[in-house]
Structures are given as C-alpha cells and as structure tokens.
Simulated scan of single mutants.
Amino acid sequence: MKVLYFAWVRQKVGTAEEDVAPPEEVRDVAGLVGWLAGRSPGHAAAFADPRQVRAAVNQDFATPDHPVRAGDEVAFFPPVTGG
C-alpha cells in the first residue's frame, strides 16, 4: 500500500510518501490512521486529531469507514477550504 502525505501532514510525518504493509486487522481508513499513528512520533503528531485529516483512497475522497487493502494508494491531507 502506498501512503501519500500532503501539506502539514507531510511536515509532521517527515516524508511525502511511504510504502507500508499494515497488519491484516487494518481494514479501513480509520484502522490505517490508528496503525500509522503508532509508527513514529511524527505520525502520532499528524494523526493526533483524526478529525483534522482528510483521506482519499485511489484518488477518491474516503470516509473513515472506507475499506483499504494491499495495492491501494491512500492520501492524507488537511481539510480544503475555499475563498
């Protein structure tokens, strides 16, 4: 699974992307966020408040209960605001 990070999420995690192999029990975006938060202090800081992070799975916006699986591309980014 390829995970992409954008904006301040990338800054906190310390990388723009990484390939990960989460355990079998990680089945949705929320589970992935929880698992990623345990990978490093930077990941923990980025996902400290999951409500402040949006996700896309395979370039489609995704809710926390959206399924994820091996081979997916999952992106995390801050909420987008317009003006």
Rank of each mutant, 00 (worst) to 15 (best):
G14L: 05
D60S: 09
D19G: 02
H66N: 02
V3C: 10
K12D: 10
G38F: 03
F77Y: 14
A16V: 00
F6K: 00
V53A: 06
R27T: 15
F47T: 01
G14R: 01
A30S: 12
A21F: 10
L32E: 08
E17K: 09
E24F: 13
G82Y: 02
R27W: 04
G34N: 09
Q52H: 08
A62L: 10
H43V: 01
R54K: 13
V29F: 05
P78D: 08
V68I: 14
E24D: 15
E17I: 01
G83D: 02
G31H: 05
D72S: 06
P79D: 11
H43M: 03
R51L: 07
L32N: 06
R27L: 14
A55C: 13
L36P: 00
R51D: 14
Y5T: 07
V74K: 02
V9K: 05
V53F: 10
R39D: 00
A37Y: 04
V68F: 11
V20I: 08
A16C: 00
T63M: 11
W35Y: 11
G82C: 04
F6W: 10
F76Q: 04
A30H: 03
G14W: 03
Q59C: 00
G82K: 07
T81I: 08
V9W: 04
W35L: 02
F77G: 05
H66G: 01
D19H: 11
T81N: 03
V57C: 07
P41V: 01
A45N: 08
Q52M: 14
G83I: 06
A55S: 14
A45S: 14
Y5M: 06
R10D: 08
F61A: 12
A37S: 10
G31P: 12
P67N: 13
P64G: 11
Q11T: 08
D60Y: 03
D65E: 15
V29K: 05
A16E: 15
P79M: 12
G38R: 03
E18F: 09
G34K: 11
G14Q: 03
V57Q: 02
H66R: 15
G42R: 01
R54F: 05
A55I: 07
P50T: 06
G31A: 10
P23M: 10
F47G: 00
E18D: 00
D49V: 12
W8T: 09
L36R: 11
G83C: 06
Y5N: 07
S40L: 06
R39N: 02
E25D: 15
A37L: 01
A70E: 14
E25R: 15
F6Q: 03
V68C: 09
A55K: 01
Q11W: 05
E18G: 05
A48D: 07
A21Q: 12
A44N: 13
V20M: 04
K2P: 00
P23I: 12
V33K: 07
V80D: 01
W35K: 11
T63S: 14
G71H: 02
G42F: 04
T63W: 09
P23S: 12
W35D: 08
E73M: 06
P41Y: 01
D19F: 07
A48M: 02
V9P: 12
P67V: 08
R39K: 14
P50I: 03
V33Q: 10
Q52P: 01
Q11A: 15
R39I: 03
A30V: 04
V26H: 05
A7C: 08
R27Y: 12
P64D: 15
R39F: 01
E18K: 12
G42C: 07
P78H: 02
A70R: 15
W8E: 13
A21T: 13
